[in-house]
Nucleic acid binder design. Structure first.
Lengths: 213, 213
DNA sequence: CCGGGAATGGGGGATTCGCCCGAATTGAGG
DNA sequence: CCTCAATTCGGGCGAATCCCCCATTCCCGG
């Protein structure tokens, strides 16, 4: 028996995934989350065997959620679901602690196969991206994917929320911290990225895969 | 004999195009422009038969430049060159008055063929995107390209420059108008699009194809 | 010929941003 | 144990943004 949590901001996608998973009697979906924060809470609460995590999510990206879950000591295996095949995402995701990366183009049988793989402690990467990962390993020198790696978890979160259009005050309320703290993070990440305008931050966040265009 | 103006912000691309065009003795490149403003001036000045126009350009996008050239009564046929194959761009471009749309992936023979076509008063669309245009025509109901159509030329320019990271003051200097005028345009376009944050404007401009991510 | 949209310009004010200065706490790692 | 990075929070200030109000000029279409 394998217990599963599904995290995706699109309800229809979630429902479709659940339907797919119901095809396997030994799979049980024990929870659904519609954003990163909710996913983290749910995983820590219900301790599933596997988490199917969308990479794009409001409030907290799938990458950050993955990072947090790992940091809190959960044993849940995380399988990241993405519509993109570019190398930068894959590296970020794996560095964040995910066990698998599967593109949304994959066949449903691939998804089931991927779940079995990560459940058993193995890794799973979609065929479409394995080659790119191999390429990345082949030349580890240029490991500056886009600059996101320079940022801390909190800074990445703040950057994402800025790019989503929230003001510092709104971000402060959402994260439950002071306006001044958000302002510090904003200053620090601007310094690190050497981008000093909102417009530049938004474009960077899009390129880095933190928000949708 | 066909006279041609080439407009592209990348020097190497321009030079490559010129080399390609030199293969045809009946083609003469009579000018090169590195941005939209320069392209408009040059076309009005030299009255070429055909303009090869990149869709991405600083100061003034290829779409806006096309729209202006048509408005000034020039008889030049405009062939838009783009690296993107998505439908929204094509619609915008054709609505702006271009005679052709060719993707940068095309073979050089296709480019020459396209020039001949527009020179003769015909239209040319890259094979890769014709199907998408047919689809768009098949269901004319959803003719809400993205909202850019609601904006005036000037507003689109200002939006592009905002998304490129310029402040209102810098935009005013670049366009040679008052800060207050830019501020007016900014307010008006935000009202029209119902987007009241810089981050939202940047994402919109990227989706609309005005700036690169 | 006249209305209206577009572009131009201006005053003023509330709010936010960007950056300067500072400091306390916490936790991971040498 | 001690250090350092991360995170938290504050005060203040100049600049920029955003949103009102307003006017003039020009040009296009009815």
């Amino acid at each position: 028996m394998t217990t599963i949590v599904v995290a995706d901001d699109h309800k229809i996608v979630r429902e479709g995934l659940v339907k797919l998973l119901e095809g396997r009697p030994d799979f049980t979906v024990i929870g659904e989350a519609s954003d990163g924060e909710e996913a983290v809470q749910m995983v820590l609460d219900k301790q599933p065997d596997v988490v199917i995590m969308d990479i794009w999510m409001p409030r907290l990206s799938g990458i950050d959620a993955t990072r947090r879950i790992g940091k809190r000591g959960s044993q849940a295996k995380i399988l990241v679901l993405s519509m993109h095949e570019s190398r930068t995402y894959v590296e970020e995701v794996l560095r964040a602690g995910a066990s698998g990366y599967i593109v949304k183009n994959s066949a449903s049988t691939d998804l089931l196969q991927a779940i079995d793989a990560v459940r058993g402690g193995a890794s799973y990467l979609s065929p479409a991206i394995t080659q790119q990962v191999v390429d990345a390993i082949a030349r580890p020198g240029d490991s500056s994917p886009s600059g996101v790696a320079m940022l801390t978890d909190r800074e990445r979160e703040v950057l994402q929320l800025i790019a989503e259009g929230l003001s510092s005050k709104e971000i402060a309320n959402m994260l439950g911290v002071s306006l001044k703290t958000v302002d510090s993070h904003r200053s620090n990440l601007m310094e690190k990225l050497d981008i000093h305008k909102v417009s530049g931050l938004v474009r960077f966040a899009i390129r880095a895969g933190l928000v949708e265009p």
